[in-house]
Design a binder for these strands. Sequence first.
DNA 1: GTTCCGGATCTGCGGACGCT
DNA 2: AGCGTCCGCAGATCCGGAAC
Length: 314
Amino acid sequence: MPSPSLPPLSGLRAFEAAARLGSFARAAAELNMTPAAVSYQIKQLEARLGVVLFRRLARRVELTTSGDALAPAILGAFATMRSAIAQTVERTQDELSITTLPTVGAAWLAPKLGRFRARMPALRVRLDMSVPTADLGALDFDVAVRSGRGDWPGLQSHLLVPNLFTPVCSPDLLAEAGRCLRGDGPMLPLLGRPNWWRLWFGALGRRDVDVDGAIGALFGLEHLDAAAAMAGHGIAIVSPVFFQRELLAGRLVMPVGLVAADGRGYWLAYPRTQATSKKVRAFRQWIVDEAAADLHAARELLAHIVEVAPAPAA
DNA sequence: GTTCCGGATCTGCGGACGCT
DNA sequence: AGCGTCCGCAGATCCGGAAC
């Protein structure tokens, strides 16, 4: 025998509240409806089921035998739904999902996140460093740290650090790398993005360099370029803000004191609908402060920034 | 406290249209 | 062809007020 279709949820909702509270008026107050609307919903439900669920008495209502038989199942079902919804909301509020570029995540964000966790110990943090997508809005995340101009539709953006790049190498290669980059010595293998190299050489006044011919390896990830440079395998072009610890510890050095900026930047972005979320507000406050502190600490490293024209769009 | 009534507002559905 | 979005319309839903 086919099971009958369910009556409208609005009617069941009114029945559940009225049965639990023993009053249409109190049910209406709880449901933000008028007593007339509750009465109408229950009358519709009774008509749909073909049974009378409440006895209307002077200034009160009580369940009929049919209503009394139906009530435990309906009250139990609504209690299950309330519990499931509460658990879902709690789980969402307890976890902050961050999507970020691999280099920003590995070299900059991950070493800092312990301080954020100490500030918000009840919040679990999930860091996603999968390959970036052009459509940020299609991703499921609470906040994103991405490179660009901060003009993603539907997203609120805050500039964290400007997009800066400069050559770095191991201390053993310092003198030789300096001569190479100024054109006074043999070319060493270049590591990192060719377009950053072209812009940087342009800022140095050397537009003659055959960058493509000098690229030694293309890892596609800045922190791998930096690792190869630390191992002495060439000169990497990286964002110095993200490799401050390596620079301050002397594991990486800047052979030429010239830092290029292309007008782009690394941004914190999140859906505008999340702007009032407590966890997003807390993370925004923390990460903006962290970025400002890093820029302040890097002021010595970044004393010689040269703005260069960004590469034309492909 | 509940029901009834008239009027206002909201919702859901089907069709048209555009995009992939 | 399949899917999503927009729009107009009909019916559902709700409210305020009055009566019981």
